[in-house]
Amino acid sequence: MANQPQNLLEVADCLLRIEVELRRLDCWSAEYPSEEALQSTQPFAVDTLEFTEWLQFIFLERMKVLVENDRPLPSVSGMAPMAEEHFRGREEGIGRQLIRELELMDRLLSGG
Rank of each mutant, 00 (worst) to 15 (best):
E92W: 09
R71A: 12
D70I: 04
M63F: 08
V65G: 02
S77I: 05
G93Q: 01
S75C: 13
R71P: 00
D70M: 04
S77V: 03
L98W: 12
I99T: 08
L55E: 04
L38Q: 13
Q97P: 00
I58S: 07
G78R: 05
K64I: 02
E61G: 00
Q42E: 15
G93K: 04
T48L: 05
S75Y: 09
R90K: 15
A45H: 15
G89Y: 06
G95C: 01
P72H: 09
H86K: 02
V65F: 10
G93A: 04
L55P: 01
D47N: 15
G78K: 02
D47Y: 13
W54R: 08
D70N: 12
E91M: 06
S75A: 11
F51C: 02
G93M: 03
F51A: 02
G93W: 06
I58K: 07
D47A: 09
M63W: 12
E85M: 02
V67I: 09
L49V: 06
Q42I: 10
L66T: 05
D70G: 09
R88W: 04
Q42F: 12
M63G: 07
E50R: 14
D47F: 13
E91Q: 14
R71S: 11
D70F: 04
F59V: 07
L98G: 10
H86C: 03
P72L: 12
N69C: 09
D70L: 09
F57E: 13
E53D: 15
L66S: 11
M63Y: 14
Q39C: 13
M63I: 07
E92M: 09
F51K: 04
I58A: 06
Q42C: 10
L49N: 14
F59T: 04
E50G: 08
S40M: 15
V76S: 09
V46T: 10
R96V: 02
Q42S: 14
A83Y: 01
T52E: 15
K64A: 05
I58C: 03
P43W: 03
S77L: 00
K64Q: 12
Q56D: 10
L38W: 07
P74H: 06
Q97S: 03
L66V: 03
A80Y: 00
E50L: 14
M82I: 02
F87L: 06
D70R: 07
T41E: 12
P74M: 07
V67T: 05
R62T: 09
M63E: 13
E61K: 12
M79W: 06
G93F: 04
M63T: 06
L73M: 14
G78V: 00
L98I: 01
E53W: 10
V76R: 11
S77W: 00
Q39L: 08
L49Y: 13
E92K: 08
E91G: 04
L66P: 01
N69G: 13
R90N: 04
F51P: 02
F59C: 05
E50Q: 14
R96P: 00
F57T: 05
Q97W: 01
V76G: 03
L49D: 11
L55R: 08
G78W: 00
I94H: 03
Q39Y: 09
E61H: 10
K64M: 03
F87W: 12
F59K: 00
S40W: 15
K64Y: 08
L55W: 05
